[in-house]
Design a protein around this nucleic acid. Structure first.
Lengths: 229, 229
DNA sequence: CGGACGTTTGAGGAACATCAAAGCCTGTGG
DNA sequence: CCACAGGCTTTGATGTTCCTCAAACGTCCG
């Protein structure tokens, strides 16, 4: 092994093994010798709110693990309108379609300040063939994407707009409170309702005490949220 | 190798290598020696319309490759209502969540007469660690699930009910015409609209010649379908 | 301060759900 | 062969929800 390669491996081992959210991420149960397969550095990056990790139809080189923050996957339509198809939080993977196709299918845009690990697709492809640990992580990520998509369809696209907003708030609060409350426009694009309707519902939830906000952070009253129909 | 194991392997090789839709399915580029890992028989089964491949919260033993027909994945809600979260056609895989979790997340119900290959989960788990061919097939299936889910969200849950129904018809016709036209109730559950609205739209499409039906088979006029707003 | 941007609120109208009834196929049994 | 029951589909009348267009309000920042 060449000296600079050794340095690279040690560098990756150190970075990933000390990662505070390692239990959540792709490399969760990678072993020391697995890291020898990582020929390229893993880059840790910070993005401001509103930045694009990648754009629709960019060519594909990287997969991103979200370390903190919130990312939306946006699907633009030919007519100029758009839809948010997924939200990604800590531990989620952005751009896994990279593993099989040649262009990203959506844009990934940060909704608040976000830190990510940027991993070369090549690396993952090589490693996933050798390491059964990574393989398991990958399939469980795919699994999560699928079940999230079903939950989305089941809870965020049917019922009244009030019910849908309540379900979105419960979804957002599920991981941690206080949680980041998206803009009314994003709530609309998430639930297929207009910005105005999103605003009316949110304003109403605030008045009845179902929702409390401070800046863009929010908490909810679960009991009230579940009673909305 | 014991005689009956040899027989088993040969049986599987023969079955899968002669499969007329093999290019579409999970075992697409499996090599002869990969088949030695298949310790259990692959069962080929026929189901009548309306039968359940598996039910929500069944314990998981099998994955199903759809050989012909149409299958809906149904997600029931606590309040008794339900939503169809996905349609599966020739070449699609039902129950891949089996690979990672311990119970199915939905019910899989046939919408017309359907033939499937029933494959033991154990088999796939063993084989996917050894065969990079199967591994690639699996990741590309996951990929398809994800992009389908996004298309679903983008085209089948936003816009007017007429636009959504038109998009569903285009989706169904995309693979082959004539295609199976689902019941009005299923169209409703697919698009999050009521049965009555689905019926009104379909009846109207028939009157304007956008849609033609014979029994439960349908063809569409793409030009008209794309103009609906 | 003024401008840009996001949020809130209002009035009117269109789209869709709801409730209800009638029509239409299909299969079954007299 | 016809009658009829049961399921699915179509159609109608009515009410509610949500969209559209518009304006006012608040907040952040140069």
């Amino acid at each position: 092994m060449k000296p600079d390669k050794i340095k690279q491996v040690l560098n990756n081992i150190e970075k990933c093994q000390l990662c505070p959210i390692r239990h959540l991420v792709l490399f969760a149960d990678l072993q020391a010798d697995d890291f020898q397969c990582l020929n390229y550095p893993i880059k840790e990056l910070k993005y401001k709110a509103g930045a694009a990790l990648y754009k629709q139809e960019d060519t594909i080189d990287y997969v991103y693990t979200i370390r903190s923050g919130l990312v939306k996957l946006v699907h633009y339509l030919p007519n100029g309108s758009y839809r948010i198809t997924r939200l990604l939080q800590q531990g989620d993977l952005a751009g896994i379609e990279a593993l099989n196709s040649s262009a990203y299918l959506q844009q990934a845009i940060t909704m608040q300040d976000t830190t990510v690990c940027k991993i070369l697709v090549k690396n993952i492809q090589q490693l996933s063939l050798k390491s059964s640990h990574l393989y398991r992580q990958l399939t469980s990520q795919w699994q999560k994407v699928q079940s999230d998509a079903d939950i989305w369809l089941t809870y965020l696209t049917m019922g009244s707009s009030r019910r849908r907003v309540a379900n979105l708030l419960i979804y957002l609060a599920n991981n941690k409170e206080p949680f980041f409350l998206p803009s009314r426009e994003d709530i609309g694009a998430l639930l297929a309702i207009t910005t105005e309707t999103a605003s009316r519902v949110i304003a109403d939830f605030k008045r009845t005490g179902l929702l409390n906000t401070k800046n863009k952070l929010a908490t909810i009253d679960y009991t009230k949220a579940k009673l909305i129909q």
